[in-house]
Design a protein around this nucleic acid. Structure first.
Length: 272
DNA sequence: AGTGGCACCTGTGTGC
DNA sequence: TGCACACAGGTGCCAC
């Protein structure tokens, strides 16, 4: 479900309710996500939420008793509900707050992640975060940086853009969209992409992700922000999910090819 | 070292 | 209607 824009929209949504609140109760489901949920999360009862941040597709909730690292996987959502609303199927984690609200993590496929980071430990040093590449909105994310990262890569440029050691936050939807806007064939080996093309990619990664955040993300099946509102960027998608439909530029039918076991959409005429 | 393949899960849509 | 199968927004490990 979530790529960077959806995670950012979710983070902004729960931030309004979580910031400066006190956690009165922690619910920990029995089923394991990507990793089992630590019972130490219970230590956060009574903690005051000090800060929310996002790194790649991870949300970090910092409190005065430790931090939580959250990942939504493929099918995870965070929802804000009143304190007394019952848990439902696939709710695996919840924070109940002193302001009468609660945050629920619902994740049918259980590819998500909830980690407890003790006070004094830096969540950014966690193994899931420590080896991540630059954020796309980092000023250091430039054409020269991207070119350097991919110059020896034989994998397709599409897979390279989704590689979290190249740049973070670009998932399967936005990789196709960015390549379309950059007029680059997703099947090309990454090492054939020129510096000028890297400039286009950097520009379009930033603009597509920003635009999607502004639109509340992309709702394909069931994504919604923490407030329940869907994302409207789906209306702006040019190629993703558009197999057989006319290219918005040249009207050629959009193609779908599998790269790295993921569906990839492109215009065979516009993208070289 | 870099890369492709696959595993981790459940839900939904499609075609027979 | 029922069933089998393909596919879904991510990530990390494993064998080459």
């Amino acid at each position: 479900m979530p790529e960077l824009p959806e995670v950012e929209v979710t983070k902004r949504g729960i931030e309004k309710v979580l910031l400066n609140s006190t956690i009165t109760k922690v619910f920990i489901g029995e089923k394991s996500l990507r990793e089992p949920l630590s019972s130490k999360l219970k230590e956060l009862e009574g903690a005051k939420v000090l800060k929310l941040s996002r790194r790649a597709k991870y949300i970090i909730i910092s409190t005065d008793k430790g931090s939580i690292i959250l990942h939504l996987g493929m099918s995870g959502h965070l929802k804000i509900l009143d304190y007394n609303v019952d848990l439902i199927l696939h709710d695996h984690f919840a924070l109940y707050l002193d302001n009468g609200k609660s945050i629920r993590l619902n994740d049918p496929r259980r590819f998500g992640l909830v980690l407890f980071v003790p006070l004094g430990e830096d969540p950014y040093q966690n193994k899931h975060l420590s080896s991540l590449a630059l954020e796309p909105f980092d000023p250091k994310f430039t054409k020269e940086y991207l070119k350097e990262k991919i110059k020896n890569k034989k994998m397709s440029i599409k897979q390279a853009l989704m590689d979290s050691k190249v740049v973070v936050g670009v998932g399967n939807i936005y990789a196709s969209e960015v390549l379309f806007l950059s007029k680059i064939d997703p099947r090309r080996n990454a090492n054939t992409v020129s510096l000028d093309e890297c400039a286009l990619l950097v520009k379009n990664i930033v603009s597509v992700l920003r635009a999607s955040i502004a639109r509340g993300g992309t709702t394909l099946r069931d994504f919604s922000g923490a407030d329940g509102k869907p994302g409207y960027y789906v209306q702006d998608l040019n190629v993703y999910g558009h197999e057989g439909k006319p290219c918005p530029i040249c009207q050629s039918p959009i193609c779908n090819v599998t790269l790295g076991q993921r569906s990839t959409f492109y215009c065979p005429k516009c993208q070289k």
